[in-house]
């Protein structure tokens, strides 16, 4: 679907990107991860034919972006970091405009508008002026304009930028919904965002792709130890002093000892947990999640939570970026 070969972009003497090369198969959702200013937006703008590459070759859906950018633009939908919306237009008028400049006829625009308003949950604000909408709704309008022409490739640059936690969750759900019918590229500097929505991650640093792969592949390749949190339900009396019935972190107990007995587990530490449960942060030389869960269940404990720690995601990222910095 997307093929980049030795693509570079210079602004004057300054290299903003590249050379980068990678391929994205049809239907895949890929996250572009990198710190601010490493060239993520430049890369996405080149893919959306908003900028032309200084060197290299970009082929999207079999069409060369340099030779025929016009044709590529028909196949790409782009949501920049700041949604490109006109405040003085109503949502409905804006989406019609976006559809018409993408070459759709009036009948098709009307049909597609209904579909994208449904996908982005904008039907109720169709007649509202865009400038009166919240940031979350504006971002949805931005996504709606990007998919109004049903593009093969959808490019989202920091789609959760400036959104509150509820809006971030809604945006994440929307992206998950769009995965079914589009090849998607999402950029972010927030690790958890990428890991929750993407099939594969490309890590960009100083204009170059320094690593790519699935989350698991990156963990396997780069982490010398894994860490995860496991929580089990416990029967614990409610505390009268109002501190809730949550198990307090620290100390040792039988569950912790059980986890520690699993081979290759190096360290177990009890951490904050919800009332009625006990949570442990586990560090191991290799991925021991399955073994730990098995041990807990076989000993009569109900596992209620199992997740990689945020610190682990960060370790992968820092490892990569740090390697390049030296």
């Amino acid at each position: 679907m997307v093929q980049l070969t030795e693509v570079a972009k210079y602004f004057g003497e300054k290299r903003a990107l590249g050379p980068v090369s990678f391929e994205i198969p049809r239907g895949e959702t890929v996250g572009i991860l990198g710190l601010n200013g490493v060239g993520k937006t430049t890369l996405l703008r080149i893919l959306a034919c908003d900028l032309r590459a200084s060197a290299g070759r970009v082929v999207i859906d079999g069409v060369d972006a340099l030779a025929d950018p016009h044709e590529v633009r028909k196949r790409v939908g782009f949501l920049p970091e700041r949604p490109p919306v006109y405040g003085e237009m109503t949502v409905g008028d804006y989406l019609e405009f976006a559809g018409r400049i993408r070459g759709l006829d009036r009948a098709t625009v009307a049909e597609r508008k209904a579909v994208v308003e449904d996908v982005a949950q904008l039907t109720e604000v169709d007649g509202e002026l865009v400038r009166n909408l919240s940031q979350g709704f504006r971002q949805r309008v931005g996504v709606a304009q990007a998919i109004i022409h049903d593009p093969e490739l959808l490019i989202l640059d920091e789609p959760t930028h400036d959104l509150d936690p509820v809006q971030i969750r809604e945006m994440r759900e929307m992206i998950r919904g769009l995965k079914r019918s589009h090849t998607i590229l999402v950029s972010s500097h927030i690790l958890s965002e990428i890991s929750q929505t993407c099939d594969r991650v490309l890590i960009l640093n100083r204009g170059e792709v320094i690593a790519s792969g699935t989350e698991g592949e990156l963990f396997g390749r780069l982490l010398h130890a894994t860490s995860f949190i496991v929580a089990v339900s416990i029967d614990e009396p409610q505390v009268e002093n109002g501190d809730s019935g949550a198990v307090q972190p620290g100390g040792d107990d039988s569950i912790g000892a059980l986890i520690r007995s699993v081979p290759d587990v190096d360290r177990v530490q009890r951490v904050e947990a919800a009332p009625g449960s006990a949570a442990y942060e586990v560090e191991a030389a290799k991925d021991r999640r399955a073994a730990v869960c098995r041990a807990l269940v076989q000993n009569g404990h109900d596992v209620v939570r199992l997740e990689r720690t945020q610190r682990e995601l960060e370790s992968v990222f820092v490892e990569l970026v740090g390697q390049r910095a030296h």
Binding site: V76, I101, G103
Partner: peptide
């Protein structure tokens, strides 16, 4: 200034 030029630039118009 408002970032809406991107919409025009990434649409199949000249």
């Amino acid at each position: 200034q408002q970032g809406t030029q991107v919409l025009l630039n990434t649409s199949p118009i000249r």
